[in-house]
C-alpha cells in the first residue's frame, strides 16, 4: 500500500544541507500496524509528513495505493489526503472555534459530501469513539482524552484506508494513553492500515512491526511477536 523508494529530504540550512531523510525505502502493506520509532531529529516527523502527503520528497518516489504522490500538485495532494489519510496528531489539532461535531464534519465538507449525508457519518464516527453525547461541546470544554477521541473520530469520518498517528499518546496520561492505543489497535483489527510515529518503545511495542530511524536512515526493521 505504501511504497517509499529511496526517499531523500534535504533542507538547506545556511551554507550546509541537512539530510532529514537520507535514502529511505520502505514497504507497508494493507492492514499492517507499523510503528516508526526514533529520537527527535531522527527524521521520523519528516517521514510522517511525506507518508501523509503533507510534504514532498527532494528525490525518490512515493507510491500510495499505486499512485505517485511526489509528482502531485498542492490541490491534488489535498484531494488525496482527504480521501486516503486520516491524521491523529499529538496536539489533537482540533479547531477551537468549532464544536466536536463540526470538527469531525470538516473532512466531509472538503470532500463535498452533502449536508444531509454528513450528519449520519459524523454521528457514527463520534459514537464509535464513545463521545457522541458531547458533540455540541467545544474542544476547550473537553478533557485531553476526549479531545483525542474527537480527533480520531475526525480521522475515521472520511473512512480513509490509512490512519497516521503522530505521537497520539504524547499529551495524555498513561491510562488514557493506553486506552487510546487499545482503540487504535481495534481500528487496525477492523481493517485500517495503521502507522504510528513515536519515540516511546512501550508504545511502539504494541505494533506488529517496528521500524527504527536514526539520522534519516532506517537502522532496524523487525516483526514483533506478541
Amino acid at each position: 500500500m505504501i511504497q517509499l523508494i529511496d526517499i531523500y529530504k534535504i533542507y538547506p540550512m545556511g551554507d550546509e544541507e541537512v539530510h532529514a531523510l537520507d535514502g529511505i525505502s520502505l514497504d507497508i502493506k494493507e492492514r499492517e500496524f507499523v510503528a516508526i520509532i526514533g529520537q527527535s531529529g531522527s527524521g521520523k516527523s519528516t517521514c510522517m509528513n511525506i507518508i501523509g502527503c503533507l510534504d514532498v520528497p527532494t528525490s525518490g518516489s512515493y507510491l500510495l495505493n499505486g499512485q505517485d504522490v511526489s509528482a502531485m500538485s498542492d490541490d491534488q495532494q489535498a484531494h488525496f489526503r482527504n480521501k486516503t489519510v486520516g491524521f491523529v496528531f499529538q496536539q489533537y489539532n482540533l479547531i477551537q472555534k468549532l464544536t466536536a461535531y463540526e470538527n469531525v464534519e470538516l473532512p466531509l465538507i472538503y470532500r463535498g459530501v452533502h449536508e444531509r449525508d454528513r450528519r449520519e457519518v459524523v454521528m457514527e464516527a463520534l459514537e464509535k469513539v464513545g463521545i457522541a453525547d458531547k458533540h455540541k461541546n467545544l474542544p476547550n470544554q473537553l478533557s485531553g482524552g476526549q479531545q483525542q477521541r474527537v480527533s480520531i473520530a475526525r480521522a475515521l469520518a472520511g473512512k480513509p484506508s490509512l490512519i497516521l498517528a503522530d505521537e497520539p499518546t504524547g499529551a495524555l496520561d498513561s491510562r488514557t494513553g493506553a486506552e487510546m492505543l487499545d482503540f487504535l489497535q481495534q481500528l487496525n483489527g477492523e481493517g485500517h492500515t495503521l502507522v504510528l510515529i513515536t519515540h516511546d518503545m512501550n508504545v511502539a511495542s504494541r505494533a506488529k512491526r517496528v521500524v527504527s530511524l536514526s539520522d534519516g536512515r532506517i537502522v532496524e526493521d523487525k516483526e514483533v511477536r506478541h
Binding site: 503533507l54 498542492d74 490541490d75 489535498a78 484531494h79 489526503r81 482527504n82 491524521f87 489539532n93 473532512p107
Partner: peptide, 10 residues
C-alpha cells in the same frame, strides 16, 4: 494548516 491537512484545497 489543519484544514489543509484534512483536505482543504486552495
Amino acid at each position: 494548516g489543519i484544514r489543509k491537512a484534512l483536505g482543504a484545497r486552495r
